[in-house]
Design a protein around this nucleic acid. Sequence first.
RNA 1: GGGCGCUUAGCUCAGUUGGCUAGAGCAUCUCGUUUACACCGAGAGGGUCGGGGGUUCGAGUCCCUCAGCGCCCA
Length: 1051
Amino acid sequence: MTTESKTATAPDPADIPSRFDFETAEKEIYADWLSGGWFHTEPDSTKKPYTIVIPPPNVTGALHLGHALNNTLQDIMIRLKRMQGFNALWMPGTDHAGIATQARVEKRIKDQEKKTRHDLGREELVRRIFEWKEQYEARILGQLKQMGCSCDWDRTRFTLDDVCARAVRHTFFDLFKKSYIYRGKRLVNWDTYLGTTVSDDEVENKPVKGNFWHFMYPVIDPKPGEPPHVTVATTRPETMLGDTAVAVHPDPAAALSKVESELKEKLKKAAASEIEGVEQQIEALQTRRTEMLASLEQLRDMANDGRMLMLPLMDRPIPLVTDVWAKPELGSGCVKITPAHDPNDYEVGKRADLPMVNIMNADGTLNAETGKYQSLSMKQARKKVVGDLEALGLLKDIEDRDIELPVSDRSGTPIEPYLTDQWFVKMNTLAQSAMDVVASKEVKISPERYAKGYLSWLGEKRDWPISRQLWWGHQIPVWSIPCPTQSDCDAMRDKVTGLSAYSDDIAVVEIEASSETDPKKRKQLGLPDFTLHVCVQDESEELEKALQEIGLVREEDVLDTWFSSALWPHSTLGWPEKTPELKHFYPTSALITSRDIITLWVARMVIMGLNNLGQIPFDSVFIHPKILDGNGETMSKSKGNGIDPLDVIDNFGADALRFGMADLTTETQDVRLPVKYECPNEQCKHQIVQTVKNRTLARVGCPKCNKEFSTQWAEKEEDLALPRGPVTSERFEVARNFTNKLWNASRFAMLNLEGYSAAPINEADLTVEDRWILSRLVTVSNNVTESLENYRYAQATRELYDFAWDNFCSFFVEILKDRFANPDLRPHAQRVLVFALDQLLRLLHPVMPFVTEAIWQQLNRFAPERGLESVQNATDCLIGAQWPQLEAKWYSADIETQFARFQSALGSLREIRSRQNLPPKKEVKFSIGCDQAYADSLSPMASYFKSMAAAELTGMGPDVQPPETNATVASDGIEIFVDLEGLIDKAAEIKRLEKEEKKAEGNIIGKEKKLSNEKFVSSAPPEIVQRERDSLAQLKEQLATVKASLKKLRG
RNA sequence: GGGCGCUUAGCUCAGUUGGCUAGAGCAUCUCGUUUACACCGAGAGGGUCGGGGGUUCGAGUCCCUCAGCGCCCA
């Protein structure tokens, strides 16, 4: 930037278009920022760090508006902090999203090539998924760039890359060494389609119509008086093949009484509409007591006496046991127990030490345990079991019933509870540490209410199942070998530790006792007594090879995807290396995310941060709202209601998208965003509301022009050939218009910079409007800073919008038109305008980086030097400019009041003009009756009434007399008389005044009532009472004026 | 079943610790193309703040209750 040219030449107006060409500008500016290296930071001990790690988007697909919101909010913070002088790092990257991505690619392969993963093999499948990942990662990062995200792209990470893999290995090794990781047989959620365990968080309960089957199991050798059968009821008849007991409640009488008293309690509090239902329940319970209690107690006694039942079809004797899981108030009061295939039964099985018979193969078919039912699917088995029992006369009843069916949210198949060996992380100690730092607010979650969910989830301290039977992910770094006996085991341990590549630093040996505790059974099943596990820390080919040579085999399973995500804040910074980045940028400053992953991700990051570094991963967590579609549903890829941010950007520009997003971010509310397809046909442009029906279609027909267009779901050639109909929402129009308004106000400024020279300004030379805009700037910049720092994005955008539009454009710039007309006033006006615009651009930059940068660089052409009391060269790029730091002295409440008087008088004049239907150019005269002080405060702005309301002020002060024919407005303790000689529309004026009269009278009655209330006057704070009195007095004056005017008009 | 949130203008939403006549944008109506901007300007109409009850001098705001909607957990 040259400093020699002290005066500017005004640009040719044709140079600056009247619309902001965001499409071109965004590309150029983003390239500028990149080449300028603005996004990249190095550790720098002279600067304070500010760090955000991106919630890494899943490479399952492209981003939607939910992500746009999330990333906009992060970029706003990063840009703010960068301007505030922090060493701001935004760490980008993507997540391999294990099961989700593998499921998607597998489905694609199946659809397109009719092949399964087993047809391809592990290596080929992983290769295919990597291909997919490359494609979607590029798309995702491209979307982020188009949104203007200022991530440090040089540092982009992927949760499955080498750096992250190393962190995973080190963490796993450490936890293994601390014995926090163990393997064990547990009942897990099994996805038979994908052939893997899924966590509770990946299971969705879906209400479906089902049945309740009642079966009779024969009693073996019943004693006289005892029933020949026990009846059980189930929603899953096929699982009876794995039954190992039938349970009855140990104290049915007490259980029934308890339920009854609970119902009675409920009845007391029940709403009128519920009472009948509860009463019926109580009645039914009482009937049950008289009819069934005796037989339940008899069964209980039989159980205690060791009576056995014969499991039909399998002809296996199973015991009748007592357990509280049996509910005497439900069904027959007895329940069949299938420990290996139902979570509740599993608990019963553990309590009663029952055998656990697994009847299922990993692919969901029945195994050899089921005899003739082997290799049937669950569905086929159900039909056959029910039929066979019926044939035996043991099917008693079939009821219709609504049931909650657990389904895998990845594949949509019903979940089978399945007993398998899995790896777990013990959560007790780890969870506690993560609870402590949130309880103590060392990690501050806002809005605060979300801390509750975090704490209660961790409080359960449920062990974390981390193994997944997938191929896409971090393979568990454990090599194992079964050891038939203790001495084999000891020998093998010695063999391992004796390997030359072995050292305690990089490997640890752990011995797992068989989960089958009964030695006889172990022998029968051919299970070894022990399994020896060796966990290896780093890629150490030598040791791995050596282990394989002596017969150890690497665990095939991979880790839950959240295991690597949990390390994200430090793995991305290079941990376990002690990198300068880690030292400088960790702990990170803020984590900005959505509420649905507080437990899955946020909690686990805190756990791992504390475990691996002994430090929290971030100081502050901000949970932002969710974007809902027009039907109030959250946007998601699976529902198909996600909107591509690029649609919005194409239509309205990235700044509009960002401003819109920030403007939606209030503390309490999720945001409903009804969207429409826009017909791409140039002549049509018809908008079609998006519905649940059409939102997943690849092509949609336009009802207006009858032509079809494609959507984001188009994949087939014939669909892609159609023009693309983008999704749009009018909610971004406001922001787009705002962008353009700002652009044009700046355009105006620059068109008027002819002869601009920078120079310090004397405070005394500032006009009222100068001081007003400066005072407002102080207030606005303070408020915006405070709002943003506390994540109150919508508050910040609203303040900026109102200031820029209503203060800066509608008043300040309008007034300047008058001053620019006078060559003597011009240089000064230019300087103040340039300064105010400069500050406004800075304030808007974090939210709308492109348009502000574009204007800034234009402004640098005409006014490279700017300032108020001292003059400085502006930075080349706005992204690197300093955040406004206005001196408090520029704030003045008096000036703001003074200016408000002008605004109010101007408003009155305009209203009268409008009501009187005066042509805009028709000049009128007016005068103001007010006290001298008021007149003095208004007089500096007297001339602006002419340019802004085509009204000439002819007199002002206590002696002003109303002209013969006039319209009068009384407010704020003054009277404005507009001379309407020869112009007046009496009827309109009477109508206006009558309305005023009515309103004033209403208000007066209200206030008088309030003030005549003795209690109000005595209890309310004196300033409130005084305010009411003043306001009443003013209203009365106003009313008198209105009445007088009316009287005169009516003649 | 438990927890959290929401209900304010036709639509989408603001409304800090209770206190001036409840705000904005869009939509609607009237007027307007005066050289920054019609993606604009000036003005207007539109709300018994979901229903009921309570606390208070005073409630959109606090408490209770009913109704409806949404999310999370079981």
